[in-house]
Simulated scan of single mutants.
Amino acid sequence: MTKAVRFEEYGGSEVLKVVEVERPEPGPGEVRVSVVASSVNPGEAKIRSGELHEMFPTTFPSGEGSDFAGRVERLGDGVTGVSLGDEGIGFSDTRSAHATDVVVPVENIVPKPDAVTWEEAATLYVAGTTAVAAVRAVEVEPGDVVVVAGATGGVGAFAVQLAKHAGATVIGTARADDADVLRSWGIVPVEYGDGVAVRIRDAVAALPGGGEAGGVDAFIDTVGAGNVELALELGVAPERIDTIADFDAARTHGVKADGNAAGGGARTLAELAALIVEGALTVPVDTIYPLERVAEAYDHLAERHVVGKVVLRME
């Protein structure tokens, strides 16, 4: 037997239970991974609440979780390229990563470099590939001024650093308390809330040559809450705005809505891991919870004051 998160009805975090289930066996082309760590994501909470029922219908009892890092424990028929005991970073397409064992196609995992911690590795699929997609969508180029709304959240923390790595000057909106974190990544912090448009314009004007540059070139919205309209107010062209949170605004204003599905799979995981090894990407881990406290992990995430990622540790 193995432990896994299950829920049997839509609802809040109280419906989540950690139960014993039969250990899954890999089929042809699959591997079983002993999970060391996984992470929690806002989209998973929306699936569990039923908010995304039309897009992601659920059959009960349901598991959850996409991101994981762990050790290859069993090989299915025909599997090549990995060995028992290999440490890997991967993702589940069947909402099953919040468990002590997970079965996935072998192409869903990549090697975990020694320099990447289990907790860092466990954050890369949902948030990391979403950020990659958003940065690509707004076509960041060297010399651009890019604004990222929600700059210290799970996706935002990746997006600001990836945009900077692409050569942009990045302005990140966040709580005033998180300004030092953004500065440590080389990001210009701006407090969100009333008057944010004025503060962003002031931040642009204060940049070297900012007065002549004319404003913001691209905008990534990880929050919603009117940020698409803010980007348009700042004069950003619709084709250089990407939102992962406000799909109604994307349809209304003709801006992009590229996210995880456009971010790529295993290849992107390997690229992100390489950036960590190079020192070009820092993954802030806000809090680590044992699997048995998964409901608390989601409650903490829902407070929206998380810097980076919330991680579940299985061992």
Rank of each mutant, 00 (worst) to 15 (best):
K3E: 15
A4G: 07
V5F: 06
K17P: 02
K17R: 15
G29S: 12
S34H: 11
S38F: 01
K46T: 06
R48P: 04
G50Y: 02
E64A: 15
E64V: 03
F68C: 00
A69L: 14
R71T: 11
R71F: 01
G76K: 12
V79L: 13
G81W: 08
L84G: 14
E87T: 06
F91T: 00
S92A: 15
D93K: 13
H98L: 14
A99F: 05
A99P: 03
T100L: 11
D101Y: 13
V103W: 09
V103H: 08
V104A: 11
V104C: 09
V106Y: 10
E107S: 14
N108A: 12
K112F: 03
A115Q: 13
T117H: 05
T117K: 04
T117E: 08
W118D: 08
E120I: 02
A121Y: 04
T123Q: 08
L124C: 12
L124E: 03
Y125H: 14
G128E: 08
T129M: 10
A131I: 04
E139N: 13
E141G: 06
V146G: 04
V148S: 12
V148L: 08
V148A: 12
A149T: 06
A151P: 07
V155C: 12
G156W: 00
A157K: 02
A159D: 05
Q161P: 08
L162W: 01
L162V: 03
A163I: 07
A163P: 06
H165I: 01
H165D: 14
A166W: 01
I171M: 09
D180K: 14
L182H: 00
G186C: 11
G186D: 07
P189A: 13
D194L: 11
G195D: 10
A197C: 03
A197N: 08
V198F: 00
D202Y: 03
A203W: 07
A203D: 11
G209D: 10
D217V: 04
D217I: 03
A218K: 05
A218I: 03
V223R: 04
V223P: 02
G226S: 08
G226P: 00
G226R: 01
V228M: 02
E229P: 04
A231E: 02
G235M: 13
V236P: 00
P238R: 13
T243G: 04
D246V: 06
D246Y: 07
D246E: 09
D248S: 13
D248N: 13
A249P: 01
R251S: 13
T252F: 02
T252W: 01
N260K: 10
N260F: 02
R267K: 14
R267Y: 09
T268W: 10
L269Y: 06
L269W: 06
A270K: 11
E271A: 15
L275A: 01
A280M: 07
L281I: 08
L281A: 07
P284A: 10
P284G: 13
V285M: 11
D286G: 09
R293D: 15
R293V: 03
V294Y: 00
A295G: 03
L301W: 06
R304N: 14
R304Q: 15
V307W: 05
V307M: 10
G308P: 07
M314N: 11
E315D: 15
